[in-house]
Amino acid sequence: MNRINQKLQEDKKLLSIYFTAGYPALNDTVPIIRELEKNGVDMIEIGLPFSDPLADGPTIQASSTAALQNGMRTELLFEQLKDIRKTVSIPLIVMGYFNPMLQYGVEAFCRKCHEIGIDGIIMPDLPLDVYQEQYEAIFTKYGLINVFLITPQTSEERIRQIDGASAGFIYMVSSASVTGSKDGFGNAQTDYFERIARMGLKNPQIVGFGISNAETFQAATETAKGAIIGSAFIKHLTDYGIATIGDFVEKIKS
């Protein structure tokens, strides 16, 4: 069974962390992953940096630009990760934008992920219909779970369609926003979380965007299976470096 599915069966709320590979320093990728696992994080999204991250706010944009300037490349990321499964056992997901994957070759990219032991892929700008028509067979062949996003504006009909096409979890974007831009959740979010919970979807939901501390983590996981922290973690890396990752995780979990 895919590590993501296994993890989702655990009887707990899941904490997932996103970081941009190659940031703060080019070779921080593996140390960050190890630190996160050591401190009890349940799942990790490894961001493949892109020059034009449309769905990201200033924090992740800046980390992507810095990572590319540091020399991060697709092949180098795979190289850094090649022995990761010797020491790390939690689910690992590669998150990025579709153009770098397309240039690498979708099949070659998936094969590489499979060899490394990557469990899933999140490509926000690879649309559902294109995925189903052209790429689903390849993802499946290499045992990769493709994760789709929904937002407060996604229609019920489309949510059901996405639920049908998903085989792991649904990435529930907390509000109409790019990453890292909202502080705290209002009634609109709570209503949305409850509305989705009532739909009885077959895939569990994990909330992302705008989760920055224990309070928002708590609020998001009231109904959802877990939550993803990105920008707040990157900010922490920028301010305190990778040595204090344990403090960050502890604060979220407290």
Binding site: F50, D52, T74, Y97, N99, M101, Q103
Partner: peptide
């Protein structure tokens, strides 16, 4: 080369890695 920019598949100037 063929790639994706601003939501469209088209020809675009990019690095080998697909950075625009």
């Amino acid at each position: 080369k063929v790639g994706i920019i601003h939501g469209s598949k088209t020809l675009l100037m990019q690095t080998q890695d697909g950075q625009i």
